[in-house]
Design a binder for these strands. Structure first.
Lengths: 350, 350
DNA sequence: TTGAAAGCGCTAACAA
DNA sequence: TTGTTAGCGCTTTCAA
């Protein structure tokens, strides 16, 4: 007697049916069931129908994990996605674009948040590798990604997004941070500003450094002495950005234009300008777009990124690698876009 | 000769090491390696160190899928999460709270977007079931969730969020939509409004219907004839909401206060008010909070939901079920919070 | 067209 | 403390 006939716990209720159950009910061999479930050829229509009927009757469902254990290539049709945080709108857009490209291929996405924690990055990568994902898409935060070299050498497809990896040659898809920031500077300079200030995020973040570099270099090109340009960094939240902006604007020789390196900083600056009643006097260009930016008073001019393009490109690279593309690793740069809404077009007070 | 000695493709480069490789290198049996990798007791420290050394040397990683195939309980330490869209901020907050509770237990999260598509709901549930997730957290959109009854009967933990399921008794965690909407109505009535309007989402969405019901019922309790209250529904994006609001406000006897049932509708109404120059004349309360609501002019009063509480509660219920809680399915209701910011405190013009 | 046997990488059960 | 054997649910291989 097998457990199937245990009358205290009927298998129809608790136990999941296997191919063997379906085969028995349909009166065929287990391999025939496998052929039907995987849409393989070489099964007569009559047999196919009988198997399908039995499978539906038992509510059978193919176990992908068990299958991929034996299958050549061992694919699990799942990938791992590591983002700064799944609750971050920018990450959400990337996630969505990736999902759309991968779901079309039947690939499921494990998602996880890093919170700028290098240890977490390593732990989550290990967790995904243990689940034998077919690929990895990640925003690197650890100092070096050399720890994944063994996996990468075993041909595990890997695409880095938003930031380039360090210590490993692999595909990456990033925003053109320096060019975008330089464009912001040029935009403000063209409107007559000579007293510009930079408010930025923590300097251990690669993208923040790139944005500062692009901004400062453009000032240099315009002949503005960059040594006297106020640079406030290490601003990782709204409140610290607001304080820094208030301080700057209350100084003896306040800037007439501000560039903020990310959304939370932009929000902090907006609050400072409102608080001091100079929203229409001091120009502002923020890096990264946000909801309702056009509804502010004035509308906020931004250097918009394109997360959906980043996600789509990353998915494309990952799928190409999964499909056996062995060309040299490449970094793809997604251009930014300057969106004029008013705050960046204000001219310096006379 | 095994494939290990194939000189055209050295196994150290391409093939993933297995327990057998580690066992051979460490000079122990395969079961001893299993004990070490799973932190099971009964291994001498010396042996443990030898196994650990060999495993690191080979860069070995335990295959969870293969393990759970044999393990009693067959847990995969992964769950499936189905959201309206991973790019939706409300969903993102829920996702994050869930992740935090589950990652602590070593559980990975498959995330996917439904886009209000019933077919997609069924396909994605099937995709996750095929991957043998230990549980499911989903926002139901299909007319009925009875299709998952077989799985639920097999004790697959399942928690529905945001909306209650139909056709199946299972745990659910929802916002108190009707009470929240009623509170919005009461708030406006208390400020002297008698001419209120409701602008809402598509009526096939359960939460939208609940919000309308709560709002209308409160008007009734206040003695306002509900038959003459303007109700505009089927608004699923900003533009349709803006148009509806403009039309309403341009009518002969325009409302002095508006309640909008979700963010996109709120944004549309905000645009209409600005366009007509009545942002400070017509009161507005929106359902659901959003970034920068306090930076608008006036600030937007909202009925805030608590996505992080929904996510945390859902995770708690799921884990309890995974741990063998067989108590009766329950619906948990998360209260809303009215946040006054100005727009909801405007009084009707004299 | 069909199916029996072997085995994927691992853990359970049991033996040494 | 350690190892051997069987077998999880499936696919591969190969024979009928």
């Amino acid at each position: 007697m097998t457990t199937m006939s245990n009358r205290y716990q009927p298998e129809t209720t608790k136990n999941r049916p296997t191919m063997r159950h379906v085969a028995a009910l349909a009166g065929v061999g287990i391999k025939t069931v496998s052929r039907v479930m995987n849409d393989e050829p070489g099964v007569s229509e009559a047999t196919r129908q009988r198997v399908l009927g039995a499978s539906q009757q038992l509510n059978y469902q193919l176990d992908m994990a068990a299958g991929s254990l034996r299958r050549a290539g061992r694919q699990t049709l799942s990938i791992g996605l590591l983002l700064p945080s799944v609750s971050n709108p920018f990450s959400g857009e990337i996630h969505r674009a990736l999902e759309d490209a991968l779901t079309a291929r039947g690939i499921a996405v494990f998602a996880a948040s890093l919170d700028d924690d290098p240890e977490r990055e390593k732990a989550l990568v290990a967790a995904f590798l243990g689940r034998r994902v077919d690929g990895l898409v990640l925003t690197p935060i650890a100092k070096s990604q050399s720890y994944v070299i063994p996996e990468h050498s075993r041909d595990l497809p890997m695409v880095f997004i938003d930031r380039e990896p360090v210590g490993i040659e692999a595909d990456a898809v990033v925003t053109d941070n320096a060019v975008g920031a330089a464009r912001a500077a040029a935009h403000l300079i063209a409107r007559g500003h000579t007293k510009l200030a930079y408010l930025g995020d923590r300097t251990d973040i690669q993208t923040a450094r790139e944005r500062r570099r692009g901004f400062i270099e453009e000032l240099g090109r315009a002949g503005i002495p960059t040594s006297v340009v106020p640079v406030r960094e290490g601003l990782h939240d709204e409140e610290s950005a607001r304080k820094a902006a208030v301080e700057l604007l209350s100084s003896e020789d306040p800037p007439t234009a501000i560039f903020s390196s990310q959304n939370l900083v932009t929000f902090g600056v907006m609050r400072a300008l409102k608080e001091l009643g100079v929203s229409r006097k001091v120009a502002l260009v923020g890096f990264d777009d946000f909801t309702l930016a056009d509804m502010m008073d004035p509308g906020i001019t931004v250097i918009a990124q394109h997360p959906e393009r980043i996600g789509k490109l990353a998915a494309g690279r990952l799928l190409a690698r999964i499909d056996g593309d062995y060309s040299a690793p490449t970094t793809y740069v997604v251009p930014t876009e300057l969106i004029e809404r008013g705050s960046g077009e204000l001219r310096p007070a006379r």
